[in-house]
Simulated scan of single mutants.
Amino acid sequence: MSYLIKPAGYQALLDLQQTEMGIKRIKDFFQQNLSSELKLRRVTAPLFVLKGMGINDDLNGVERAVNFPIKDMQDASAEIVHSLAKWKRLTLADYYINEGYGIYTDMNAIRADEELGNLHSLYVDQWDWERVMTPKDRNVEFLKKVVNRIYSAMVRTEYLVYEAFPVITPVLPEEITFLHAEELLQRYPGLTAKEREDSAAKEFGAVFIIGIGCKLSSGEPHDGRAPDYDDWITETENGYRGLNGDLIVWNPVLQRSVELSSMGIRVDREALLEQLRISGQESRQELYFHKRLLAGELPQSIGGGIGQSRLCMFYLRKGHIGEIQAAIWPQEMRLEAEKNGMPLI
């Protein structure tokens, strides 16, 4: 069910033309900085992949992929991508990318099962990136190092926006705070996972929550994660599990937390087999992607996605993602958003 947050007294700080100029500046500047920070080269990515090869991102495992038959291939079924989490790792192998280097691309997706609202659209656009690493990098400290590099690019981009539009004052702290999902559970007892994210983001300004998908002391994971890309089962030095996480900031317009990036160290053979077993999806071992990984044909890697429209929405202090991107919205949401100063493109 769609849901609209109505920020009290909201008024857009930029008009439509300024907004489009801001979007262009942000996207150009941020992707250049991301590429430099992580040593990434840009590649071309697919909009759709063949169904049944295990390449598409299964997200939480319940979302339906938009699919269509291909006339010239005996009606073989293609799926619009949810993201390129697994495709990128195949590309690292096929392009023979060296350790310490990687790729990034503009990922465009359709997620038909999204609950539409200020932050969620049917159309998803993000920078998907993937970088080759060594086995000795399979640790939380390496994960944090990469997160800090990405966050540095985010802080610099916010200052660029301020220089172009002085009415927009920077709000990101200089450093990001790292918390494991279990630490979050203990720090804010009695709250739901979303409420814990809101509390942490409000307290620290920007947080990276480690361990998305692993079972916590409550018996439940902080949030769902597919079993075949991020490693959420490996036990770390501090006794926690998980080598992945979500980058979350406090949004001063919506007065709530907003996830800008999901990323992690990817599964190796052992983590994949264990996570497939835990999720009851051992049959995936017979799929194309999984066979190549289990055969040792894919490099160890770290990767993730960074929402383009969400990033622009945050930097330009917009109340609705529909002020950044053109998409389909329920008519009642369009009318209500317009009443509350948020005209949807």
Rank of each mutant, 00 (worst) to 15 (best):
S2A: 09
Y3Q: 15
P7F: 03
Q18W: 06
G22C: 03
K24R: 15
K27V: 15
K27P: 11
N33C: 10
L40V: 05
L40H: 02
R42H: 08
T44F: 10
L50P: 10
K51S: 11
G52T: 08
M53S: 14
G54S: 05
V62W: 10
A65G: 14
N67H: 11
I70T: 07
M73K: 08
Q74R: 14
A76H: 14
I80D: 12
H82F: 06
Y101S: 10
G102R: 04
D106G: 07
I110Y: 13
A112V: 15
G117H: 02
N118T: 01
Y123I: 06
D125C: 12
W127M: 13
W127H: 09
E130D: 14
M133A: 13
T134H: 10
L143G: 09
N148V: 14
R149N: 11
I150W: 05
A153Q: 03
A153C: 12
E158K: 01
V161P: 01
V161Y: 03
V161K: 08
Y162D: 05
A164I: 07
P166L: 04
V167F: 02
F178E: 00
L184C: 00
L191R: 11
T192D: 06
T192L: 12
A193S: 12
E195A: 13
E195F: 04
S199N: 04
F204D: 00
G205E: 00
G205F: 00
I212W: 00
S217A: 09
E220I: 02
E220M: 04
H222C: 08
R225G: 01
D230M: 09
W232D: 15
W232V: 05
T234P: 02
E235L: 04
E235C: 03
T236W: 03
G239I: 12
L243P: 12
G245E: 05
L247I: 05
L247A: 04
L247S: 00
P252M: 04
V253T: 00
Q255T: 08
V258W: 10
L260Q: 07
R266M: 11
R266G: 15
V267F: 06
E270S: 12
A271S: 15
A271D: 02
L273E: 13
E274A: 11
I278F: 02
Y288A: 12
F289A: 07
E297T: 09
E297Y: 14
I302C: 11
R310G: 06
M313V: 07
K318T: 06
G322P: 03
I324K: 11
Q325Y: 03
A326P: 13
A326N: 11
W329P: 09
W329V: 05
E332F: 07
L344R: 04
I345H: 14
